[in-house]
């Protein structure tokens, strides 16, 4: 029993990385932007968080305020990840660059930038993360007293709950608000949206910037909460980033489904730790999420249900003159 609860709660914890990453990418893709830079954006989010943490811990000396210790790295992560989204939008919307190439460039650039920041900060960052990661990891002190129930529902840090809340809010925005309707129209048929007086450029910029910022929190969470150290965190962040992109397809562009999908992906990712297997089998098991995604992709393509297809104009830049 306790092994199962431990497994599930670990899966839920890890799922937050996927959930932030895929939710951000979903918001971006709904506007018609295929941002394959999500892994890079997540690395930049993590690196931004480390920069914020190092600066704050150094400035605060011994007296670290738990609230600020979480807020400042989070704001740094949001800001730098958003910058990557702005760069992507500038290249694809304003300079009309190919979306696929730009996205892959953002990934390469983001991972490299993250590694550079790591090297530049040196051991100061390790100290800072070690000192403040405990504030990321717990929110409800009473969780220990509730046994398995507490472990399963109340044992996580603030970012886990934030991700789930945000996923629900995003779903509601997509389906129930005017902004959501307009955003979906921009991603489906920008010419129609344009004719209806909706600014395609504004929607694509804003959605991509917000989406990237949200993805960046995934990287922040992974370093500060899940691992609690730099170590090999950036390489893993990139790998998890690609899984987040796959998760967007797996959840059929629905953030609310993303909550369950990310837990499944998290469970599959950590499953080898709970089985007595060698390294080779371990890597094989961690491939399962990709396989599952391919199966989902094939099934939805075969069923041809229009609601489950990607936004129709995703990956295509829009220029009014070429109508």
């Amino acid at each position: 029993m306790s092994a199962i609860v431990g497994f599930l709660s670990s899966a839920i914890r890890l799922s937050t990385t996927f959930l932030f990453g895929s939710m951000g990418e979903t918001i971006t893709e709904k506007s018609g932007h295929l941002n394959l830079g999500t892994p890079g954006v997540m690395c930049v989010g993590a690196a931004g968080g480390c920069l914020g943490a190092t600066l704050y811990v150094t400035a605060a000396g011994g007296a670290v305020n738990p609230f600020l210790a979480v807020l400042i790295p989070a704001l740094f992560a949001l800001f730098f990840a958003a910058l990557m989204g702005a760069l992507y939008s500038f290249l694809t919307v304003s300079l009309r660059a190919n979306q696929n190439v730009t996205g892959l460039m953002i990934t390469t650039f983001g991972v490299g930038l993250g590694k550079f920041v790591k090297g530049a900060l040196g051991s100061d960052a390790d100290v800072a993360i070690g000192q403040i990661c405990k504030y990321f990891r717990t929110l409800f002190p009473f969780a220990d007293k509730l046994g398995w129930f507490g472990q399963l529902f109340f044992s996580y840090g603030i970012l886990v709950y934030l991700a789930i809340a945000l996923a629900i809010v995003t779903s509601v925005v997509f389906r129930r608000t005017r902004i959501g309707l307009h955003l979906r129209a921009v991603g489906e048929n920008p010419a129609t949206a344009d004719a209806a007086g909706i600014s395609v450029t504004a929607y694509r910029y804003v959605a991509t910037i917000i989406g990237s910022a949200v993805s960046g929190l995934g990287g922040l969470f992974y370093i500060f909460d899940y691992v609690g150290a730099w170590d090999s965190g950036l390489t893993a962040t990139e790998a998890l980033g690609w899984l987040a992109v796959a998760l967007v397809i797996f959840t059929l562009w629905r953030p609310n489904l993303g909550i369950l999908g990310s837990i499944l992906f998290g469970a599959l990712y950590i499953l080898p730790n709970y089985l007595n297997v060698g390294f080779a089998q371990r890597d094989l098991i961690q491939c399962v999420p990709y396989l599952v995604t391919i199966v989902v992709l094939v099934i939805t393509s075969m069923r041809k249900k229009r609601e489950n297809q990607p936004p129709a104009s995703m990956g295509l830049n829009y220029f009014r003159e070429e109508r």
């Binding site: 979906r184 129209a185 129609t192 007086g197 609601e307 129709a312």
Partner: peptide, 22 residues
């Protein structure tokens, strides 16, 4: 000029700014 995956109502509501609640 219609969005295929939207309902008739959603298409008509598209871009509408009548100041009313959505």
């Amino acid at each position: 000029k219609l969005v295929d995956v939207f309902t008739a109502g959603e298409n008509i509501a598209l871009g509408l700014r009548d100041g009313k609640k959505f």
